[in-house]
Simulated assay, not measured.
Amino acid sequence: MTRLVLAAALIIYNLLALSTGVDAECEACPNCDYESISISQGDACLNYWTCSGDTISCFYPSVANPGTFTECSYSPPNDWALSSGPSDICFPYAGINSKCQPGNDPYNLGIPACTASYGYVGEGNSALL
Results as ranks from 00 to 15, higher is better:
124 G>I: 05
115 T>D: 04
38 S>G: 08
44 A>G: 09
51 C>Y: 00
75 S>T: 01
69 F>H: 05
57 S>R: 08
50 T>C: 13
106 P>Q: 09
47 N>H: 11
41 Q>N: 04
104 N>E: 00
119 G>Q: 03
90 C>M: 10
44 A>K: 09
90 C>P: 08
64 A>D: 15
58 C>L: 09
20 T>K: 08
37 I>Y: 09
61 P>A: 07
41 Q>L: 07
119 G>F: 02
78 N>S: 04
70 T>S: 13
103 G>C: 03
40 S>A: 08
85 G>M: 07
122 G>A: 12
113 A>H: 04
75 S>A: 11
122 G>P: 04
41 Q>D: 10
46 L>K: 04
47 N>A: 15
114 C>Y: 00
126 S>Q: 10
37 I>Q: 12
99 K>D: 15
98 S>W: 07
15 L>G: 10
129 L>S: 15
20 T>A: 12
80 W>D: 01
120 Y>T: 07
52 S>W: 02
35 E>F: 05
71 E>G: 04
36 S>R: 12
12 I>E: 15
84 S>D: 14
41 Q>M: 10
73 S>F: 10
103 G>T: 01
108 N>I: 03
77 P>Y: 08
84 S>L: 06
83 S>D: 03
105 D>M: 03
37 I>E: 05
65 N>V: 13
33 D>E: 03
97 N>V: 11
8 A>Y: 09
55 T>V: 14
2 T>P: 09
117 S>P: 08
60 Y>T: 06
18 L>N: 12
81 A>M: 04
58 C>V: 09
78 N>H: 05
70 T>P: 04
71 E>K: 04
96 I>T: 06
83 S>A: 06
104 N>F: 01
128 L>S: 02
59 F>D: 01
87 S>E: 05
5 V>S: 12
80 W>V: 01
20 T>G: 03
50 T>H: 15
73 S>G: 07
96 I>G: 00
82 L>K: 08
101 Q>G: 12
126 S>K: 00
53 G>P: 09
107 Y>L: 00
55 T>A: 11
62 S>Q: 13
116 A>I: 00
71 E>W: 02
6 L>T: 14
48 Y>F: 11
67 G>A: 02
4 L>M: 14
26 C>E: 00
44 A>N: 14
105 D>E: 06
48 Y>T: 11
31 N>I: 02
125 N>T: 12
42 G>H: 10
32 C>F: 10
97 N>Y: 09
35 E>Q: 12
35 E>G: 09
6 L>N: 14
105 D>G: 01
39 I>D: 06
109 L>S: 02
64 A>F: 13
71 E>V: 03
19 S>C: 02
54 D>C: 06
53 G>R: 11
63 V>K: 14
11 I>Y: 07
25 E>Q: 05
105 D>I: 00
79 D>C: 13
40 S>I: 04
45 C>L: 07
